[in-house]
Amino acid sequence: MSWLSVVVVAVWAMLPAYVPNNAAVLAGGGRPIDGGRTLGGARALGDGKTWRGTAAGTAAGVGLALILDRIGPTVAAVIGVDVPGFPLLAALALAFGAMVGDIAASFIKRRLDRERGAPVPGLDQLDFVVGALALAALFVPTWFADTFTPGVLLVVVLLTPLLHLSTNAIAYGLGLKDEPY
């Protein structure tokens, strides 16, 4: 597989995990998942992690995966790269896993005594990737192994921080986020 093909497959396969956190920002608000509870003197998660945002983010990721699955054969024929399909369980694992990874990062940040929105380089850019890939590997191991080859995983790990920082800067510029990272 050429490097261009590897990059295309990496981005295509991760799109259902890239979208949820952005959708959660747009649809967020409402009841915090932690219900305002504290743990060790700090909020367990904080006001930024809500049930509505988690549900909306997961739904957006699954919806996108279903669209990609439908248009995949046409896209593959046009660009000349075989893109992976998305079984429903893979779509759910990637989307919900991305949300779980982000929630876990929030929990870690609170334990590190970081305020909401405070940067933690590396964690901020890859938390959702780890969650998405972990749930996909757990719930759809054959699909995961076929899709996320070592080269694809390498591209995901290298490209995601750049995409993450770019989209966050755009969201900040549009007034959708309070910080540009």
Score class of each variant (00 low, 15 high):
A59M: 14
A59E: 13
A55I: 14
G35C: 01
L45K: 07
D47N: 12
I71H: 13
G72P: 14
I67K: 10
P84N: 02
A44Y: 06
R43C: 09
A24M: 00
T50G: 04
L64N: 03
G35F: 07
T58P: 14
L45P: 11
I33K: 00
A56E: 08
A23F: 05
P20Y: 03
I71T: 10
G28V: 01
I71E: 06
V62E: 06
G57E: 12
L64P: 12
A24R: 01
A56H: 05
G35A: 00
G61H: 04
N21T: 07
L68Q: 15
G40I: 01
V78S: 09
G48T: 01
A65L: 03
D47A: 14
A65W: 10
F86P: 15
A56I: 10
V25L: 08
G85R: 14
G63E: 07
G35R: 03
A65G: 09
T58D: 10
G29S: 00
V75S: 15
D34I: 05
W51R: 03
G36Y: 15
D82T: 13
D82P: 06
R52Y: 04
I79N: 06
V19P: 03
G40A: 11
V62K: 00
G80Q: 08
G36S: 08
V19F: 08
T50K: 05
A23T: 01
R70W: 14
A77C: 04
A59R: 12
K49S: 12
G40P: 01
G53R: 15
A44F: 12
G85T: 15
V75D: 03
I71A: 10
G36H: 05
T38D: 14
T58W: 00
